[in-house]
Design a protein around this nucleic acid. Structure first.
Length: 438
DNA sequence: TCTGGGGTCCTAGGACCC
DNA sequence: TCTGGGGTCCTAGGACCC
């Protein structure tokens, strides 16, 4: 596995494009009142500027003449693409983790895996990357697993190159502080430290049950394995997004309801634009809400059908807002959509250009049927064999998936119920017999 | 000038189902 | 009459990453 991490990436692109900034401290990040540092050049780091630090703090630390820039994300993403294309020449298995970070499965690329060949390969990659990007540098780690490769690139940056030979993983790992393991942040670090675990060697001495008790099932067993360099996670190219969101911190806290609702509209628009561009739709809307005192809460609602329209997202988010106490003012609002599913366009619904039903009514859980079709309805106590034909409706939402909506009593007179199922033999024209579902 | 914005994964409780 | 054990889905919050 190879891990590549571009050095002080945003700042490096700025220094590439503006020669006057080369060799000087550069800080990229929010320049407004409530900004935070995204990237500090190594020159700025010498003065103590760090990622995630408030811009004000960075200004206090850096000398006059430091460049504070807002960021040009189009330029970063263009440069990133150049690098990722280079990586894809090495192997078909490339997993991009972020704009400035990726894993490459070198074995799948058919490369010789001895230390000398790998070192030469990494050296060559670093040079080509530098040339192709016009001056950006990166750190490379190569090891038998993703975690070790990432640790390798981290250990030798900037402009690093570290190959960890197979068999020497534990020698590299054990002296390291646990905090340097990916996934061990401030909270986990403190918990481990409270029981005397500071290095990976300390971690290695703890039993699986100890660690699970300390930090939970998933994290505990993950750490247990990590301490043993036991990591077989594959490189996964083309990960599908699971959620899309947009949020904004306001220069001054918002209090006016009409303003808040207007802001929700523009956030919803940003989310939906990306949703539609990706040809995807979601079922859950989440509203994120940060008060003047930085306390943060989220409220979410899941609808029965996937949606990708602004109206639905904005309406649901506004309803969620209505249930939150806004006294004191709002610092940040966010709108997100999750439960994403890509839908296939124009297949089984050639005559119906809108495969996804209009969901306005769904928000109130009192839907009007779009397409009505007679379907069997089951009543409590009724033998399935003798179920009457009642009115329900079917809405297809994609290939081989049929959702049937039942109206009327099930176990008791009550709300509308929805059933959905996947079946390769299913077609919307031929709904399944949902009576067997009870 | 206190604390961005975009994500992922996990946990825990409750509702509900078989 | 008293009360199970497996499971899924939803919601809210938290840790973590870049």
């Amino acid at each position: 596995m190879l891990h590549l991490d571009l050095d002080a990436f945003f700042a490096a692109v700025e220094q590439r494009d503006k020669p006057s900034l080369r060799g000087k401290p550069v800080v990229v990040g929010g320049t407004g009142g409530r900004g935070v540092v995204a990237t500090a050049s190594y020159e700025a780091r010498a003065y103590g500027a760090r990622s995630a630090m408030s811009s004000g703090e960075a200004r206090r630390r850096c000398p006059p003449g430091t460049a504070f820039l807002g960021g040009r994300f189009a330029a970063y993403s263009l440069t990133s693409r150049v690098v990722m294309d280079l990586l894809r020449e090495l192997s078909p298995l490339v997993e991009q983790v972020s704009v400035d970070e990726a894993y490459v499965d070198l074995a799948a690329g058919g490369h010789a895996l001895d230390v000398e060949s790998l070192t030469a390969l990494a050296h060559d990659l670093k040079e080509r990357l530098h040339t192709a990007t016009g001056g950006v540098r990166g750190s490379v780690g190569i090891a038998s697993s993703k975690t070790l490769a990432k640790i390798g690139s981290e250990l030798d940056k900037p402009d690093g190159l570290l190959v960890i030979p197979a068999g020497s993983e534990l020698d590299v790992l054990h002296p390291l502080p646990v905090r340097s393991l990916p996934g061990v942040g401030p909270a986990t670090g403190d918990r481990l430290s409270s029981v005397g675990v500071r290095t990976v060697a300390d971690l290695h001495e703890r039993s699986l049950t100890d660690l699970v008790t300390l930090v939970g099932q998933a994290h505990g067993s993950g750490l247990y394995r990590l301490a043993r360099a036991d990591d077989d996670r594959p490189v996964v190219p083309d990960r599908e997004a699971k959620s899309v969101s947009a949020e904004r911190t306001y220069a001054t806290d918002l209090t006016d309801l009409a303003t808040l609702e207007h802001e929700i509209g523009s956030l919803a628009q940003r989310v939906v634009t990306r949703l539609q561009k990706d040809g995807t739709a979601g079922r859950t809307v989440t509203l994120k809400f940060r008060r003047y005192d930085f306390t943060t809460l989220t409220r979410s609602q899941t609808l029965t059908q996937p949606f990708d329209d602004v109206r639905t997202v904005a309406d649901v988010a506004r309803r969620l807002l209505a249930g939150i106490d806004r006294t004191g003012g709002v610092r940040l609002l966010g709108v997100g959509v999750s439960g994403l599913a890509t839908y296939v366009q124009g297949d089984l619904f050639a005559e119906d250009p809108e495969p996804v039903a209009d969901l306005e009514e769904d928000i109130d859980a009192v839907p009007e049927p779009e397409a009505v079709r007679a379907v069997p309805v089951w009543h409590p106590g009724q033998d399935v064999e003798h179920a009457e034909m009642g009115r329900g409706w079917v809405w297809g939402s994609g290939l081989n998936r049929v959702t049937v909506r039942f109206e009327g009593p099930r176990t008791a007179p009550g709300p509308v119920r929805t059933y959905a199922g996947d079946d390769p033999d299913l077609s919307p024209a031929d709904p399944p017999d949902w009576r067997s579902d009870g």
